[in-house]
Design a protein around this nucleic acid. Structure first.
Length: 840
RNA sequence: GCCCGGGUGGCGGAAUGGCAGACGCGCAGGACUCAAAAUCCUGUCCUGGCAACAGGGUGUGGGUUCAACUCCCACCCCGGGCACCA
């Protein structure tokens, strides 16, 4: 009867069987409530699936399985984010077309995912590089273009000289190209931009509507960087021109002792031509130098500031009409605020550093309420130490003296507003999104340039604009896309006037396809629209979206933006609401043995295939869930894998043993103690899965099996029934156990389920419910403390009163001994938990 | 510098005011074996003790409480993000 555990055999068998029966196929029309469970789709790299991928996949698979058994219609899809540089670079090296490589890689990924027994609905598989998919990515771009959300702009971009590609700010890490590590240089280029800044406010405020981890929300908020303040106009003395600055500290305006313009400030050509400037050459030279500096270099030294005074002009402080010098300095950024600031050296670190460098006067106007004397920034030798940047009470600010910072801002604003010199303003750190890449392996931007008509969108009926087949994938040395070399593709007719015109040769960045893929899963085969309203209304929003923390300010933010845009223009039903994802969670990385990152160069990469070959997919799954808290990075430990494998072998052994009793005598009840534990375990596993506390869910399963095994072996436990040998768990209860094991180790659970005699798949069964009464009926351990120190543990019936517990406690010799050392002063009782006797 | 996490045995971790160290790994001893592996059993925070037991113990210092890994204040260390954003 006893069969040995052979994971390889049963796993293959069931994977085939599940596929044959179409068990994980999701139906669109169902009366059941829906759950859309989504895990970020991978970039199918040549290296194949790795252990880090498996963790979130298994976790969300567990959720999907449980939700199905709880009666939900679950959408749990998978696809491929296939456009991207590694595949293109591989094509450059080998000449193999990227689509061919992509096909091969996705085949490998898919086969690996199937080996893990993940319950994806493969009938909805999508590939972002597939023309039937990117047709709609291009279509979305056209909508952006038509609504003025996409525009072309000559901007200094981050240029990677090695990849020959423009990079988004997010792709530059420490001044180096994220992919190849080459130092990024500055280069001016015409680029397509998306106006994500238009959505800055809503991207922040709608975070209140979703269930994201607080750290994710904070990260997005900080990245968008909202700052509320005022714009103030400073007249240039004797000139028509005035300079507007942005400040969030209007309360410090009486302390402003100079004005600084960024080198790119638009007022410069005009100012320089007034003839008033005495050092025009020096100013021009400084501006020129700043232009060639990489932004990164400008930011490198924080304390040492450079700049040049624009001699011959002064600005008028609108608060007190004092004249102040004007500088150009590159510590002021052109793209933030108004590109100009008022320098308040006493209350701003950067202005302070600058003033020290240029020996500018410093005027304290905010007194620090927590310090008694002012001028905390003077050292004993009379030099400054540091500015006070906090809020406080105004001094040296005329009639605003004595006001607190927030109130002062309001009053000063009123005062300046009356003079027409100030207005409220909000600025964001977020910048528009550079959306072109001078590359091949991406979605062609569906626009045509006509010398007569300008940029003309490709008519929707002509979509998709397919990538032409080419031989040489290398970008041109001028940094143009390799597509620029394909004459017969580039040269076309203007859709508007029919005259000769040229196609845009830039392609979209690799984030384009993932902006909206979750919509496509709802209706993946639709060739009339990106997804039908009916299906979107049923499935959207995504109920649970898991992905990497590293995508928080990239993919997550981008896709929220694109969704909002589509929602605004009515491409998706209004009923979904303004956010695509209801709930977001993040997994921790899987590190190599010893806690270092797994990488090819370190040679510590572990292939999931090898783990499955040796231990089976169920072991891999259970171990990935057991290894540590889901959201935390954790090191792989082969010895730990063996431990989990041991556990599964044990489960197999106990279950098959128990099955022999089921056969022998059809009817017997579960031992009471085990029944109680079973129900507790069902509760624990159910709750823990919801909270993604998979590690403790597994340990609860282990504890149950330890007890089950102990009772099974315990002859005394069997003897009192009068029978020589009998089981300890009824058939029904074995089934319940298998159901809670199922999400973690589906193959084993299904096999044992069938050995138990069931014909239909365990996936079709209902998630077990625990019985509140059974859990509560057991006895509880009540701790008796004397002066807060544990002195005894009493086993009491649940719900025992204080009196009952006290009586039992005082009968206990140990408690008696300790209590007798003084007089009882106080007794604290928490039902079913503790009795603390305080003596003196 | 600022903003988030986090600090518990030899290791991964459990316990979110109520028995610190669940579960697993490792280690030690034992059983089986000619032997090894595998498997099974027992033990495993530190100190003293043959033991019962007593005392100490969750980064450091203080506080609140009958009771603190858990809450509050200050500090130290580690990880991540942002960083001249006015």
């Amino acid at each position: 009867m006893k069969k040995a555990y052979h994971p390889q055999k049963i796993e293959r068998k069931w994977q085939k069987e599940w596929e044959r029966r179409g068990i994980f196929r999701t139906k669109d029309n169902s009366k059941k409530p829906k759950k859309y469970i989504l895990v970020e789709f991978p970039y199918p790299s040549g290296a194949g699936l790795h252990l880090g991928h498996c963790r979130p996949y298994v976790a969300l698979d567990i959720l999907a399985i449980k939700k199905r058994m709880e009666g939900f219609n679950v959408l749990f899809p998978m696809g491929w984010d296939a456009f991207g540089l590694p595949t293109e670079n591989y094509a450059i090296k080998t000449g193999i077309p990227p689509e061919k490589v992509t096909k091969r890689n996705t085949r490998i990924f898919k086969q690996q995912m199937k080996r893990i027994g993940l319950s994806f609905d493969w009938s909805r598989e999508i590939t972002t590089s597939d023309p039937s998919y990117y047709k709609w990515t291009q279509w979305i771009f056209l909508q952006l273009f038509k609504h003025g959300m996409a525009y072309k702009k000559r901007i200094p971009i981050n240029w990677c000289p090695s990849c020959k590609i423009g990079l988004a700010n997010e792709e530059v890490v420490n001044g180096r190209c994220e992919r190849c590590g080459t130092k990024v240089v500055r280069k001016e280029k015409e680029q397509w931009m998306l106006r994500i800044t238009k959505y800055a406010e809503r991207l922040i405020s709608d975070l209140d509507k979703v269930d994201f981890p607080e750290r994710v929300k904070t990260l997005e908020r900080d990245w968008i960087g909202k700052s509320e303040g005022h714009e103030v106009e400073f007249q240039l003395f004797g000139l028509e021109q005035s300079i507007t600055v942005f400040t969030s500290r209007l309360d410090t305006i009486f302390g402003a002792s100079f004005l600084v313009l960024s080198p790119e400030h638009p007022a410069f050509p005009t100012i320089l031509q007034t003839g008033k400037i005495k050092n025009r050459k020096a100013v021009e030279a400084y501006i020129e130098r700043a232009k060639n500096k990489l932004e990164r270099e400008r930011l490198e030294k924080t304390a040492e500031k450079t700049g040049v005074e624009i001699e011959g002009i002064k600005a008028v402080n609108p608060a007190n009409n004092e004249l102040m010098p004007v500088f150009v300095a590159d510590y002021v950024l052109a793209h933030y605020g108004t590109g100009a600031i008022m320098g308040v050296p006493a209350h701003d670190e950067r202005d302070f550093d600058f003033a020290r460098q240029f020996n500018l006067p410093l005027k304290e106007v905010i007194s620090n309420p927590s310090e008694k004397s002012h001028f905390g920034f003077y050292l004993s030798d009379g030099r400054y130490s540091k500015p006070y940047t906090g809020e406080g009470i105004l001094i040296h600010s005329g009639r605003f003296d004595g006001l607190e910072s927030p109130k002062a801002r309001g009053r000063i604003f009123e005062f300046l507003k009356q003079k027409g010199k100030a207005r409220k303003a909000v600025h964001y750190k977020l910048r528009d999104w550079v959306f072109s890449r001078q590359r091949y392996w991406g979605e062609p931007i569906p626009l045509i340039y006509c010398p007569k008509c300008g940029w003309v969108p490709v008519p929707e009926k002509d979509l998709p604009v397919k990538l032409p087949k080419i031989k040489n994938y290398k970008p041109t040395s001028t940094g143009e896309s390799p597509l620029a070399k394909v004459k017969e593709w580039v040269e076309t007719k203007c859709p508007k006037c029919g005259g000769p015109a040229r196609r845009e040769t830039d392609v979209m960045p690799n984030w384009a396809g993932s902006n909206w893929y979750y919509l496509r899963y709802c209706d993946p085969k639709n060739n009339k629209e990106l997804a039908s309203f009916k299906k979107l209304r049923y499935w959207m929003p995504v109920d649970w979206y898991n992905g990497g923390m590293e995508h928080t300010t990239l993919h997550l933010l981008y896709s929220r933006f694109i969704f909002k845009f589509l929602w605004d223009i009515g491409v998706v039903p209004k009923s979904i609401g303004p956010e695509p994802y209801k709930k977001r969670t993040s997994h921790g990385m899987v590190l190599g043995e010893g806690g270092i990152k797994m990488s090819k160069s370190k040679g510590n990469v572990i292939n999931p295939n090898d783990v499955i070959d040796e231990f089976g997919a169920d072991t891999l799954r259970v171990y990935e869930m057991f290894m540590g808290p889901f959201e935390q990075a954790i090191a792989w430990d082969t010895k730990g894998v063996r431990g989990v494998h041991r556990f599964l072998q044990k489960v197999w052994a106990i279950c098959t043993q128990e099955l022999s009793f089921v056969d022998a005598s059809k009817k017997y009840a579960t031992l009471r103690a085990l029944e109680v534990l079973l129900h507790k375990t069902i509760k624990k596993v159910s709750d823990d899965i919801e909270q993604m506390k998979f590690n403790t869910a597994v340990s609860a399963l282990m504890e149950f099996c330890n007890e089950w095994s102990r009772l099974q072996n315990n002859q005394a436990a069997l003897a009192h029934t009068g029978q020589k040998k009998r089981g300890v768990l009824s058939k029904r209860d074995i089934g319940k156990f298998l159901k809670i094991l199922l999400p973690f180790a589906p193959h084993m659970a299904e096999e044992l389920w069938h050995l138990l005699g069931y014909r239909s798949s365990i996936f079709k069964s209902k998630w077990p419910r625990y019985n509140q009464l059974i859990i509560k009926e057991e006895k509880v351990n009540v701790v008796v403390q004397v002066n807060g120190k544990k002195r005894a543990i009493l086993e009491m019936p649940r719900g025992s009163s204080q009196k009952e517990v006290e009586k039992a406690a005082l009968q206990n010799p140990k408690v008696r001994k300790w209590v007798s050392k003084g007089n009882i002063k106080k007794k604290i009782f928490v039902a079913d938990k503790i009795l603390n006797i305080v003596i003196r």
